[in-house]
Design a protein around this nucleic acid. Structure first.
Lengths: 329, 329
DNA sequence: CCTTGTCATGCAAACGTTTGCAGAGAAACA
DNA sequence: TGTTTCTCTGCAAACGTTTGCATGACAAGG
């Protein structure tokens, strides 16, 4: 690790001014092409890499965005992180990642600490109260994902219509008693999904039951499985695939057959076909959502805070192997 | 997003010099305590946050480390990422995350691009050839995780002894035909684990069979399940839990009972108890490994590249529900 | 041949910190 | 009271870029 060469050294070595070297990287169109080539070749030779901090200081642009998720271990987030990463890289930006550990205080501290150092912050599935988010959104460049707060820039994965389709499908199969098994109470998605299931159940004249798998873990859902079938539900919609999977784990232990005895539909399509039977679920175009959010952050048309825009992507129902006609007793 | 206050503005407002404000943050012991209080209070009031880029430029310390993983969607990595994150934060450092997408070229480009901007790089489960890693390690501050390359700093999760224990256990149950289902060929862990299974099988006089689930995905393993039992294996050790899970998926479809017909042991303990039956596996103290690596990166005793130290953490066998006596035909 | 314009490059200031050095008091000592 | 030591603070240079402005060379147009 020899101290790395600076633009000045490279310039001296080439007999040009530092500005020329700088421009060879940032505004090559201003230089003669052979000058550019010469500089680039020399840079390559001595292993020159521009110092990002100096650049950021000079331009006022950070060259990075931040990404905050509540729990990186939840399989829903990694694909989103990867997508954000790819789009950021394409825009020439690096990504700072932070995990709020489902803790609102920690999340807020992270936002305050990171926001000044980056172009903007992608806040995914925030657990903060709406008022705080609105406030923070007024002070920093935030793009919310999966959280609908008026007055902020937000991109939403909207399960409503897919849930309607799911319930129509279940009703069509003959199910009449539907359970919703919810996740983290601070999650906007959870509230939205529960409301959608309830509303649509009423519309279709189905009996609706609501449960909550507190922390939203596999184990919590598994522990709930007995209760859910005990109360007579023949179909359950879970907040996400992790909970759906937990329920399946519980049912397997109790010899409750899926989909024979009970149908299950998850959400997020985070598990692909890794369950047995393969889980029916609601799938989102996560990559596009991430692209939208990153793009908003990097579009410097707005020098200040982001416009209060609401972008929604609808999910789609994908039926695999966990839904069928209810067993007639 | 009003332009944020600088140290100079804060200083002017307080009637002190910028150095004093700077020291209030970095070397408060050099100032009178009431001066420190006054500065901190004013900073708090106007919302001053030090500019990290300026600081980095001035001190030459980046205030961040980089983290490169081959596939963030593989459940083995998120816990590791989180652990690294936490330890870095504790040391006052942020974390740049990048995903090499299992692509060696991309991985190398990432290392070269990121290394100069950070204090050091955590390279997890590298897919690069040893020679490249040795070379890069000589030029940048790298800490390898899960890759044993002489001449570099590396922390290893060593499955050998746990695999020995696993095979002893299986042999004790009466198994005689053992299969190893491997993952990515570029993975050091994969080679290490295969070798350990093979060696121990010979020692115990067991019949050893080796398979490879090419890309190391759930689907690839699932597709292999028929072949594996077809060839008479009664117990299989999988490269990791994802593959073990894939095999279980395949067995479930083919009505091969686990553990009745075939016993399975995974590795990494990435799935906890979310399979049915709960997967027996090999567990590692990932948090400690991450701590070790981050600590090495942040310990600036060595200003240049890291010492060529090898730190190994042994895994331990955890038996859950996928191992039992082989069925006697 | 002079003017005007274009193109490629250089000069120097600025970005917001940190930090070695120096200086002003105040305190301690003789 | 004079000297020394200590504590606190300020000055100014440095970190490595970028970029507005100025300049010189050269070509084109008259």
């Amino acid at each position: 690790m020899i101290p790395r060469p600076t633009i000045t050294q490279l310039a001296a070595q080439l007999g040009v001014s530092p500005s020329t070297v700088s421009r060879a990287f940032t505004r090559p169109d201003l230089l003669r092409t052979d000058t550019v080539d010469r500089v680039l070749a020399a840079a390559q030779a001595v292993g020159y890499v521009p110092n990002n901090h100096a650049r950021a200081l000079s331009t006022g642009k950070a060259g990075a965005i931040g990404l905050i998720v509540p729990d990186i271990a939840n399989p829903f987030f990694p694909p989103l992180i990867r997508a954000a990463q790819n789009h950021a890289t394409a825009a020439g930006l690096a990504v700072f990642l932070a995990d709020s550990d489902e803790n609102p205080d920690r999340e807020e501290r992270l936002i305050i600490a990171m926001a000044p150092q980056v172009e903007g912050l992608l806040v995914v599935s925030s657990r903060l109260p709406s008022s705080r988010l609105r406030d923070l959104s007024g002070r920093y460049r935030l793009a919310l994902v999966n959280r609908d707060v008026g007055g902020t820039f937000r991109v939403l994965l909207d399960a409503t219509s897919a849930i309607h389709a799911a319930l129509s499908h279940l009703a069509g199969l003959g199910h009449t008693r539907i359970a919703y098994v919810g996740g983290p109470e601070r999650s906007w998605s959870n509230r939205q999904r529960r409301a959608a299931v309830e509303k649509r159940s009423r519309e279709l004249g189905l009996h609706f039951m609501s449960y909550s798998a507190g922390p939203g873990t596999y184990e919590a859902a598994k522990a709930l499985s007995r209760t859910v079938v005990g109360n007579g539900a023949t179909a359950v919609i879970a907040f996400d695939d992790v909970l759906a999977h937990g329920l399946m784990g519980g049912f397997a232990e109790e010899k409750v057959d899926v989909p024979g005895d009970v149908s299950i539909i998850g959400c997020d399509d985070a598990l692909a076909t890794t369950t047995f039977p393969p889980l029916s679920t609601i799938s989102f175009r996560v990559d596009e959502a991430a692209a939208e959010a990153v793009h908003a952050l990097t579009a410097h048309s707005s020098p200040g805070t982001l416009p209060a825009t609401r972008v929604a992507f609808e999910g789609s129902l994908v039926l695999r192997g966990t839904t069928s006609t209810p067993r007639r007793d």
